[in-house]
Structure formats: structure tokens, C-alpha cells
Design a protein around this nucleic acid. Structure first.
Length: 491
RNA sequence: CGGGGUGUAGCGCAGCCCGGUUAGCGCAUCUGGUUUGGGACCAGAGGGUCGCAGGUUCGAAUCCUGCCACCCCGACCA
């Protein structure tokens, strides 16, 4: 089985693709730009879903579901929104097929044309706000704090597994509020939920900030985001939270009566993360041996591989392995015992490394004699012998250590690849040579931003909320700048 | 949508330029045996409308035309 993975340093795209495919996460499908998420990949996604869902519930949200199809007219109601999404939508024009009278197969029945086309949702603001109109009359109906787990379709020109597929899975939160302050508070609360999840669960350090005007979500007043740095020095937007002002309420005529008896438009937010997080996970931690999963997201945290010469040995080792397995499981650790007898241990080692299992335990005849096991860490590729006695405590601690170490390694990488520059010349050199995050002053104008993008392919990833807020002078124009902003080339 | 490339067994490929036995190879699969502390070995077996549709020809994986799909590089984007 030829399973070698392309080196990370030679062809980053190929390396990424190899890992996604060979670790069994996903594959290209027969449908243009779409992917098949395989069981192993999906079980990781389910862990992401479950944890995020818990965090949404803990912040007072509920789940709901809205239609896949959106009448075309809904899109015309918010001008900047349609401009942002119109280019890349799948459109349903007919509702029936019929047998081709001229030959084999089926054709679209021209008789069955829809009066109004339906758009396959690229995002659900429009249909949800059209619904909210009938739900909201009074301030007593607010806030509405909903989340939807769904698939959406954006007809992208070029696709990459998880990072950009024509169809993708995500969650989208859509909230309605009586006041501007409350909506802004919600927007910030949710971007912080994303940041916490990225760091504590995915093990990916992120910069929280706001988008510049040109990078802002179509229809938003302000977009907050989390930005992560990948191992090739490119940035990945991992989640966004939008303050939508009253734009959608005005577009869909959603008003409420306030306590004082005034009629006012409702304030809105929306926020989302997608299966792109899976891509972030791969690009942030993997190495040339394959995927590296943080223990909190690994579907199986520990695999036990027996080493044996014959059936007697296997049965003796199995007894011990099952004993250890149940001890670990009592500590809430997920364990798999791989007793397949047609594969050699070395093959299994390589396979579990490829799939990113955080810890591997090998048990052989020597271990039975000495009362030990061999424990291998996926993240560092180190091995050591550990006493069987108290193994469950050892492994429990080890999993926590690995979770922390993976995050710290990514954090160190980001620190090492984040630089502050003063001049545009310096900026150009940095972006070309090592990429990474670059902190620089910017005069706040779209023109300067566009010039930088045009000349260097770098964009403003965000205006960081935290960190050094010293004012300075724009590296391009020399005009005053309130604070440094974060630049990078991005996915 | 522009530039480049590829479609041959489950996967990876050779064959095509220069048409000619029954279309090959590696991995995987199945059977039997020997193995098993880092990707095993030997022997045997199964598996193909050569992307699709036309055309040229006695004869097409190979030449011609059209179409389709996918990949890579740009532009666009979560």
C-alpha cells in the first residue's frame, strides 16, 4: 500500500490533500466541487458539532431549521447582500424531469418551469428574516437567539477539500435584538465563543478582530472574525460573527413595539463556522507522517496494538489489553484494541500515525514479563516504557499534556511567524520570503488596502481587538493610523 | 472565466508519438503456507464497456472531431 505523504515543505497543497484523503477524512465526489466526508472525518466533525452546540446552548441559544430553498425575490431586498452572493449561487429553475423523446435518458421538462426561481441557500439571513417578520411584534418577543445546523451551497470556481467546497456543512446563528448595544454584545460574545473553541478544543491559537470594510460580510455593519496561521505561512479565517445593524430588519420590514410604545426596526447578528474547521485542524497540526489530532477531538484517543508470534501469545496479550482498555474507559478515555492478525505491528503503527490517534500503546511478550507497556505519542513521535500499574492515570495526564503541547506548538509557530514592520519595503520582503502574520500601520482607507492587495496579494485579515494599540503612520501613505492591523496572504 | 495537465482494474501508473496476437505493471483483494517489538515473504487466483459519443481504417487504448469529468496555477470566496 503506497501511503507515503508528500512532504510539507515541497508542495503544501499536495501535502494537505494527501493527509485529508489518506487519513480517511474525505474524498472528492463525483459531483463538481463537492466532497464526500468519510466516517472517520465525520466523527471528528461530530465532535466539533457537539462541543459547539453545548457552547451555544450555554449562551442561551436554541436550534431551529429553515428551508434549503430561498425565493429569488428575497435576495433582491438587501442590495449589498445580493451583490456578495449572487455570483455564486445554484438556482432551481424546474421541478420535473421527463424521458427524452429523442433517445435515452431523461431531460428537464420544459413545461415544468418555476414561475419564480429558487436559490439554494448560500446563507440563510434572507429566509430567516422573512420568517422573523411574522414572529416579532413587541419587545417581549425579543431577543430571538437561534442557531441552525445546515448545508449551504456556494458555486465556487475552484475548490479544495474542506477549505472550499461547493457544498459545505456549517452552523449559522441568527439573532434578533431590541437594542443596538445588545446586538453588538451578542456579536462579540459569539466570536469569543469561537476563539475559545478554536484554542481549547482544536488547539489552534487565533487572533480575534474586526474586518476592514472591503472584507466585511455582505450586508453587515461590522464583521468580527478569528484568524489562524497555517504551517505554510498563510492565514485562514476560521469563523465570523456579524453585527448586521438594522439592515435585514429594514429589508424585510421587521419592526417591534418598544416598552415606550415606539415602533423600531430590530437589530440583528449572524455568526457561523463550517467544515472549514476540519481543514484548519489538518493544516495547523499535521506532519509528514499524517494527521495529528488534539485528544479532545480524536474519535479514538488511544489505540492498543498487540505484538505476538502465535495465538497463545495473542490471547495472553488480549487479556491484558482488554483489562487496560476497560481501566482507561472508566476514566472516560476512548480506546480501540486492534487485534487484527493479518497485519504486522509496523503497518498498524504507520496507519494510526496517518490517522492521528494521539496515543498508541503496544503490548508484547516482553511487556507481559516486565509488567510494562510501550506508550507512543503521536504529536512528538516519542516512545517510552510505562508500568501497567496505574496506566490509566498516566494516560489521562498524558492526554491533557498532549492537548496543551499541541496548542503551545502552534502558538510558538505563530509567534515565530508574526512580525511587525514599519515600511512598505520591509513588508514586501517579509510577505514574499516567509509569509506569516505581519502587523503594520494602515491609514484605514480601502484604496490603500486595495493597492497592498494588488501589489503583494496580502490582505488585512483583521484589526485585532487585543494587543498593542499604539498609533503610528501608514506604511504606504504615511497618514496617521490608530493601531497596527494584521496582514497575511490568506486561504 | 483565462493558462496548463490528466482520464487505462479498488488505488497509483506504463502502453499512445510510429494503429496490428489474448491490454500490461506495482499496490490492494481472495486462497494456502511461513511470518509478526516500525509499513512481511513465497506460490496461486479473481478483477477492464481503455472517460463518453461519433468518424477514419481490414483492424483503434493508440489517429481525427465533438462533448464530459477531474487536478494544478490565476481571479472569487467560509
Amino acid at each position: 500500500m503506497a501511503k507515503e505523504i508528500t512532504s510539507r515543505n515541497e508542495n503544501y497543497s499536495q501535502w494537505y490533500n494527501d493527509i485529508v484523503v489518506k487519513a480517511g477524512l474525505a474524498d472528492h465526489s463525483a459531483v463538481r466541487g463537492c466532497m464526500v466526508i468519510k466516517p472517520y472525518g465525520f466523527s471528528i466533525w461530530e465532535k466539533i458539532q457537539r462541543q459547539l452546540d453545548d457552547m451555544f446552548k450555554a449562551t442561551g441559544h436554541q436550534n431551529a431549521y429553515f428551508p434549503l430553498f430561498i425565493p429569488k425575490s428575497f435576495f433582491s431586498k438587501e442590495a449589498s447582500h445580493v451583490e456578495g452572493f449572487a455570483k455564486e449561487c445554484a438556482i432551481v429553475t424546474h421541478y420535473r424531469l421527463k424521458n427524452d423523446p429523442n433517445g435515452k435518458g431523461v431531460i428537464v421538462d420544459p413545461e415544468a418551469q418555476l414561475e419564480e426561481e429558487l436559490i439554494v441557500r448560500p446563507t440563510s439571513e434572507t429566509i430567516i428574516w422573512n420568517t422573523y417578520r411574522s414572529w416579532i411584534q413587541s419587545y417581549r418577543d425579543l431577543p430571538i437567539l437561534l442557531n441552525q445546523w445546515a448545508n449551504v451551497v456556494r458555486w465556487e470556481m475552484r475548490t479544495r477539500l474542506f477549505l472550499r467546497t461547493a457544498e459545505f456543512l456549517w452552523q449559522e446563528g441568527h439573532t434578533a435584538h431590541a437594542t443596538k448595544e445588545e446586538a453588538i454584545e451578542e456579536t462579540i460574545k459569539m466570536v469569543n465563543v469561537y476563539a475559545e473553541f478554536a484554542q481549547n478544543w482544536l488547539g489552534i491559537p487565533v487572533i480575534v478582530g474586526t474586518k476592514s470594510e472591503s472584507e466585511r460580510f455582505a450586508g453587515a455593519v461590522e464583521t468580527y472574525c478569528i484568524e489562524a496561521l497555517m504551517q505554510d505561512g498563510k492565514a485562514l479565517q476560521a469563523g465570523t460573527s456579524h453585527f448586521l445593524g438594522q439592515n435585514f430588519a429594514k429589508a424585510f420590514d421587521v419592526k417591534f413595539a418598544s416598552k415606550e410604545g415606539n415602533l423600531d426596526y430590530v437589530w440583528a447578528t449572524s455568526w457561523g463556522v463550517s467544515t472549514r474547521l476540519m481543514g484548519a485542524l489538518v493544516m495547523a497540526h499535521s506532519d509528514d507522517n499524517g494527521l495529528v489530532l488534539p485528544p479532545k477531538l480524536a474519535p479514538i484517543q488511544v489505540v492498543i496494538v498487540p505484538i505476538f508470534r502465535n495465538e497463545e501469545e495473542l490471547s495472553a496479550i488480549s487479556a491484558k489489553a482488554n483489562d487496560i482498555k476497560s481501566k482507561l474507559e472508566q476514566f472516560g478515555i476512548t480506546v480501540q484494541f486492534d487485534d487484527r492478525d493479518n497485519l504486522k505491528p509496523g503497518f498498524k503503527f504507520a496507519e494510526y500515525e496517518m490517522k492521528g490517534y494521539p496515543v498508541r500503546i503496544a503490548i508484547g511478550p516482553k511487556d507481559l514479563e516486565k509488567g510494562t507497556v510501550e506508550v507512543a505519542r503521536r504529536d512528538l513521535l516519542t516512545k517510552e516504557f510505562v508500568a501497567q500499574e496505574g496506566i490509566e492515570i498516566y494516560i489521562q495526564k498524558l492526554l491533557q499534556t498532549i492537548q496543551n503541547d499541541i496548542f503551545n506548538k502552534a502558538l510558538n509557530f505563530r509567534e515565530a511567524n508574526t512580525t511587525s514592520v514599519e515600511t512598505y519595503e520591509e513588508f514586501k520582503v517579509k510577505i514574499e520570503n516567509r509569509g506569516g502574520f505581519i502587523l503594520a500601520h494602515w491609514d484605514g482607507t480601502p484604496e490603500t488596502e486595495a493597492k497592498i492587495k494588488e501589489e503583494t496579494k496580502a490582505t488585512i485579515r483583521c484589526i485585532p481587538l487585543e494587543g498593542n494599540k499604539e498609533p503610528g503612520k501608514c506604511m504606504v501613505t504615511g497618514k496617521p493610523s490608530a493601531q497596527r492591523v494584521l496582514f497575511a496572504r490568506a486561504y
